[in-house]
Each structure stands twice: as C-alpha cells, then as structure tokens.
Amino acid sequence: MSNIDIISGALIVAGSLSIVVGLLGVYRMPDFFTRLHAASVIDTLGTILILSGLILYQGFNLVSVKLLLILIFILITTPTAAHALAKSALHGKIKPILGDD
C-alpha cells in the first residue's frame, strides 16, 4: 500500500464521516432553513472529499475526468436546488426562526 493509497483512503473515510455529521445536523436543527445549512455540509464537504479521494486513487485517465465532471456537476446543481427549496418554502408561508441580534 503506497502513500497515495493511504492519503486517498483517509480522504474517503473523512468524507463519509462528514456526511454522517451533516445528517446529524439535519436531525438536530430546529427549523427548515437551518436544516438547509446542515444539508449543504453534505453537498460540499462530503462530495469534495470523497470524489477527490477517488481521483487521487485513480490517477489521471478517462475515469478521473469523469469523476471530476461529476464533482463539478454536483457543485453547480446542489446550490441551485437549495435556492429553489428556500425560495419556495418562503413562498409557502414558512417563517424562519430568527435569533436575538
């Protein structure tokens, strides 16, 4: 097992643990808008760590280009979906809980 394998394995395990942390946040947060913040941890940290670990494991060829394409695609589409969710929840008469400033 070479050094690169160890680094990529550590990245993949860290990514899957961050997914569990994000889901824990989804369970703990008090209202819908704060749950969206916890979900964006899954969409960014988990995806970046796992897919970059797989790219590092694979080296540079056609498969890693496909992995990079999946990463870019997820990073473009998930904020769009989160924005659409927040906007339609606001129109659907869900009021965000605001803290004391």
């Binding site: 808008f33 964006s40 960014t44 940290l45 990073l75 473009i76 904020p79 769009t80 924005h83 906007k87």
Partner: peptide, 16 residues
C-alpha cells in the same frame, strides 16, 4: 454570486 453564497455552508441566498 448567488450560487457561491449558497454553496458556502452557513449562508443561503433565499431571494434574488
């Protein structure tokens, strides 16, 4: 700009 605000955890753009 709006997408990078949403992509950063902790901030979400809800109306553009």
């Amino acid at each position: 700009y709006a997408n990078s605000i949403t992509l950063t955890p902790g901030t979400i753009s809800i109306d553009l």
